[in-house]
Simulated scan of single mutants.
Amino acid sequence: MTVRAEGTALARLAGLVGDGGVVVLSGAGLSTESGIPDYRGPTGRSRNAEPMTYQRFVGSEEARRRYWARSHVGWRQIAAARPNAGHRAVADLERRGLLAGIVTQNVDGLHQAAGARQVIELHGGLDRVVCLSCRERTPRADLDARLRAANPGWAADAGQINPDGDAVLTDDQVKGFRVVDCHSCGGILKPDVVFFGENVPRPRVDHCFALVGSARALLVLGSSLAIRSGLRFVARAAELGLPIAIVNQGPTGGDHHATLTLDAPLGPTLTALTSVGPRDAGAVGSGTRAAQ
């Protein structure tokens, strides 16, 4: 049943985390307090957005032009984002030796910016660019400078920024934008992230499964678990009989596997978690609901 039990819920979560060996699985909801919208959560500004697919990107020069024009604008918001209280709390838990690792579905790099070190970027990172021919990886900042040089005087204001840094622009705004290729081999450049229709590299998936397999518990933060990419790790933890805690605003696709669920804002909840001992709960802020 569902009960209002702020202190009890936080005490249970603190006890689970305080025993150590926890793997964190984070999603877009953890970054909304940094100003980055999510796809399915409360901010939901991009729910009707049509993400770029790998097939369209590699198969159409015009699709690449549209993507890079939109991403060139949206990258400014991603690059300017700063870690919020939730990211800092996760980094603090890692510094205390309570985490076995962090698997993030986010591509914004905010876990690392907050000081976390053991981070697996399941879907890659927007701060890097990869050549699809020679596989050379270069910093996104370098590409940004090259695109600015290739498009002098080009400017566009976006009415909306999507979670992957994709800005919504009109056809007229995109028209005339010049794309640059790999400076080493002339190949197609792509952000070093996993597009829809593209598989996460198998070694990366295996690494995440191994991490879950050696964990004592799984803590899901800010993920709706609506797609298999993250849900599979929750399912594996359930198969292994691991305690599973989920902190998210709204229901998730993994709630039926969970030992504990908290419907609560991530920043205040995780800050409260780091301020109490593993067996001693304080107040966690009004509105928190725990299912047990």
Rank of each mutant, 00 (worst) to 15 (best):
E94A: 00
E94H: 05
R95S: 14
R95G: 12
R96V: 07
R96D: 06
R96G: 08
R96H: 08
L98A: 03
L99I: 05
L99F: 07
L99M: 09
L99K: 03
L99T: 03
A100K: 13
A100F: 03
A100D: 14
G101F: 04
G101L: 04
I102R: 02
V103M: 05
T104V: 07
T104F: 02
T104G: 02
T104L: 07
Q105A: 01
Q105M: 04
N106I: 08
N106G: 06
N106P: 04
N106S: 08
V107C: 06
V107S: 04
V107I: 15
D108R: 03
D108L: 01
D108T: 04
D108A: 03
D108E: 08
G109T: 05
G109M: 05
L110H: 00
L110P: 00
H111F: 06
H111V: 07
H111Y: 06
H111K: 06
H111P: 04
Q112M: 12
Q112N: 08
Q112S: 13
A113N: 02
A114F: 07
G115F: 01
G115C: 03
A116R: 07
A116F: 05
R117V: 14
R117T: 14
R117L: 12
R117P: 02
Q118D: 15
Q118T: 11
Q118V: 04
V119Q: 09
I120P: 06
E121N: 15
H123S: 06
H123L: 13
G124E: 09
G124P: 06
G124N: 09
G125W: 09
G125A: 15
L126Y: 06
V129K: 00
V129L: 09
V130G: 00
C131G: 02
L132S: 09
L132Q: 10
C134K: 05
C134L: 08
R135S: 12
R135C: 04
R135G: 00
E136W: 01
R137S: 12
R137V: 15
T138Q: 13
P139S: 02
R140S: 00
A141I: 13
A141W: 11
D142N: 09
D142R: 14
L143T: 00
L143H: 01
L143K: 01
D144I: 10
D144G: 11
D144T: 13
D144H: 13
A145V: 15
L147Q: 10
L147V: 01
A149G: 14
A149W: 10
A150T: 11
N151P: 06
N151T: 08
N151W: 04
N151Y: 07
N151H: 09
P152G: 10
G153H: 12
G153Y: 13
G153F: 12
W154Y: 10
W154A: 07
W154S: 03
A155Y: 11
A155P: 01
D157H: 13
D157I: 10
D157R: 15
A158C: 10
A158F: 10
A158I: 09
A158T: 10
A158H: 07
A158L: 09
A158E: 11
Q160G: 02
Q160N: 12
I161M: 12
N162K: 10
N162I: 00
N162Y: 10
N162T: 11
N162W: 13
P163H: 02
D164L: 08
D164R: 06
